[in-house]
Amino acid sequence: MSVPVSLGAVPRRLGAFAWQAVLPVALVLGYQVAASAARNPFFPALPDIWQAFVTSWTGPGFTRDVAPSLIDLFAGYVLGVASGLAGGIVLGRAPRVRAALNPLVSFALTLPPVALLPLFLMLLGIGPQMQIGVIAFSVFFTLLINTTEGLRSADPALGDLSAVYRIGGLRRLLVVQLPAAAPYILAAMRTCLSTAVLVMVVSEMVGASQGIGAQTLLAQQSFAYEQMWAGMLLLAVLGCLLNALFTLAERAVLRRAGLLPATSTGARP
């Protein structure tokens, strides 16, 4: 889709893009200069890190460590989003249930999921189910709260519209309420994506022998610093990539829904 851009905007955009590219490159070069000057085993040279990256994370390394991590991440995230969305819909439509559960939800939201890792280890044991469980848990409450809030804070005019024209049930939920709450829900999904990566890594560090987190910690403990750096590099790349993919998907959804704020005109008197 082509966006009309005024002439003055082109150099500005190029400038912004150049800056976005320059900064990481400068950081990498800076690291390389510092690392070769320091000759410290904690800071291996870039080619060595890259070598470790290729051997650890591609080929058999990919199937052994990267793929299970990604599968757990995906499963936990989807499970958490789906259950949080479902719970949020229930709470958003039932004020009584919401009021009754409110203290519990507020409490659960303040608990860092990582702090509950021992509990999850105990309940679910070691294995992917533990990782998936903690990731889903970390996503669940944020989705729950935001979905509820999105449904509750919808424009009352939409409630009037549904009442007068008797739009009810599933149609009201899908066509009127959820689209109105979409910005809240998408914001929660974005926040939760980075939380999910974090929780995945930490949960693998404490309760797994395979996976990106487990391998990275193992590398540090066995003084394989190139490999440790390769792990951190992979996590950084993964984080950026997921965020970029999410942004693309979000924009596509909002554009399809005609909700992109760029075209907003606001209410006319």
Binding site: A157, D160, L161, V164, V176, P179, A257, L259, A267
Partner: peptide, 16 residues
């Protein structure tokens, strides 16, 4: 019964 709202822009769904 149907009602044409005074605040018509708020009563149209922007995603439809």
């Amino acid at each position: 019964a149907a009602l044409v709202f005074q605040d018509y822009s708020r009563s149209l769904l922007p995603w439809l």
